[in-house]
Amino acid sequence: MSGPEVVAEARRWIGTPYRHQAATRGAGCDCLGLIRGVWAALLGDLPERVPAYSSDWAEPQRQEVLLQAALRHLVPRPLTEAEPGDVLLFRMRAGAVAKHLAFQGEVGAHPTFIHSYSGHGVVENPLTRPWARRIVARFHFPERGA
């Protein structure tokens, strides 16, 4: 699966409104819904059913739900080796569980990321230092048929 393919599909979702637990381009999605939707468009069926989830992502129980799911289905990459199309996992504050996902858009001098964010929908933003320091894991989609 090429990074440019992933980025192109993710950019097709820009403008989709934010909707908790949704994953429909143009109608609504949250950050996980964006990842699910791009997966479905490029790889087909999801590898497992996504149960209902709250916006706190099991934070009170301190369970790394998103990180564990990512480790089951995505290919881990070094944090220091950014490539377009990488799936980024963020910890929104120090000591909290990881609960936000995005795709790396551009790399280099002006990096960007594509994500669905409450109050904004799917947008491509500069990957500024405050956002970059929150990244706790980086992944690739698996190869087709893997």
Rank of each mutant, 00 (worst) to 15 (best):
M92D: 10
L74F: 14
T80I: 00
E83A: 15
T80W: 05
E81K: 08
D56V: 10
E59A: 13
P84H: 04
K99L: 09
E81L: 12
K99H: 15
S55C: 01
R77C: 15
P76Y: 02
P78C: 04
E59D: 14
V87M: 06
A82E: 14
A94W: 02
P51N: 11
R77F: 00
A69Y: 06
P60C: 05
S55R: 13
S54P: 00
A98N: 08
R72G: 05
R77V: 01
A52S: 13
T80Y: 01
Q104V: 05
R93W: 13
L88M: 09
M92N: 15
Q61H: 09
S55P: 01
E81F: 00
S55I: 10
Q104M: 15
M92Y: 03
R77S: 08
A94P: 04
G105C: 05
R93E: 13
L101P: 02
G105P: 05
G95M: 10
A52Q: 13
G105R: 02
P51V: 11
E83S: 07
R72D: 06
P51F: 09
G105L: 02
V65C: 07
H100Q: 11
A82P: 14
Q104K: 11
R72N: 10
V75R: 14
F103V: 07
L79A: 08
D56E: 14
Q68V: 12
L88K: 01
T80F: 02
K99N: 15
K99Y: 00
G105W: 01
R49S: 15
A102T: 07
Q61P: 00
P78H: 08
A98T: 06
A52T: 12
L79H: 08
P76C: 05
Q63D: 11
A94I: 04
A94S: 12
H100C: 03
L101D: 01
Y53S: 10
S55W: 07
H73Q: 08
L74A: 01
V65S: 10
E59H: 09
V75M: 03
L67G: 14
Q68N: 11
V50D: 14
R49E: 15
G85K: 05
Y53F: 13
H100I: 04
E81H: 13
A102H: 06
G105I: 02
L79V: 08
V75E: 11
L101H: 02
R93V: 03
A69D: 12
L79P: 10
Q63C: 07
K99T: 08
G85T: 05
F103L: 07
E81W: 03
Q68D: 13
Q63K: 13
A102D: 07
E81C: 02
V75P: 00
S54Y: 10
A102F: 07
W57V: 14
H73C: 07
P84D: 05
Q68W: 03
F103D: 04
P84T: 09
L79M: 09
A96K: 09
F103T: 05
F90S: 02
A58K: 13
P84G: 08
R93P: 00
V75I: 15
L66F: 01
R62W: 00
R77K: 14
A69M: 10
V50M: 13
L66D: 01
E83Q: 15
P51S: 15
L79W: 08
V50A: 10
E83M: 11
R49Q: 15
G105V: 03
G85E: 06
R77W: 00
P51D: 14
Y53L: 09
D86Y: 03
A69Q: 14
L67P: 00
L88C: 04
F103K: 03
K99W: 01
A98D: 10
P60I: 07
L66M: 13
